[in-house]
């Protein structure tokens, strides 16, 4: 995984209105989200910000109000197809999310949390000295 994909993923997630948290110890960081459903990403597509999960996460995350995904650096792939392949190598049953649930069906007005999570947070594994500001430069 090149440094480039890491930055690309952060940018893509932010474009998708996803909350991005950088942490050198993402699993520890995830413990702070007691009220949320935390899932471990099977892979992530850097260019578009699509996060794949294995099927065991399905119902829990679909019904969650707040969905938190932990993404390790090794799970970051350049695009959807590569991310799909990596996820598939971990489980035969996979799914993907790129944002909280949303709708624009009434007068095109964007509403978050239509049927699924109202909020989607991605905790990204970062080097110790990396924080959001330094990465984005």
């Amino acid at each position: 995984m090149s440094e480039n994909y890491f930055k690309m993923l952060i940018e893509a997630l932010e474009r998708n209105s996803v909350e991005v948290i950088l942490s050198p110890n993402p699993k520890e960081e995830a413990k702070k989200y007691a009220g949320a459903v935390v899932g471990f990403a099977a892979s992530a597509a850097a260019d578009v910000g699509v996060i794949f999960f294995t099927g065991s996460e399905l119902k829990r995350s679909a019904l969650a109000d707040h969905h938190v995904a932990v993404v390790e650096r090794g799970a970051i792939m350049p695009d959807i197809i590569a991310a799909y392949r990596l996820a598939l190598s971990k489980s035969g049953k996979i799914l993907a999310s790129s944002s909280a649930s949303k709708t624009a069906d009434i007068e095109g007005k964007l509403v978050w949390g239509m049927h699924g999570p109202r909020k989607f947070t991605v905790i990204l594994e970062a080097e110790k000295n990396e924080d959001s500001a330094s990465v984005k430069e």
Binding site: G49, I80, K93, G116
Partner: peptide, 28 residues
């Protein structure tokens, strides 16, 4: 195959304008 099916949903949602889609489901 899977790859073409993936490309199909990518193209479809990109040309709808909602790309990436919030969810990709592959029910099994």
């Amino acid at each position: 195959n899977d790859e073409l099916a993936l490309k199909s949903i990518i193209v479809q949602s990109a040309f709808v304008g909602t790309f990436p889609p919030s969810y990709i489901n592959i029910p099994e």
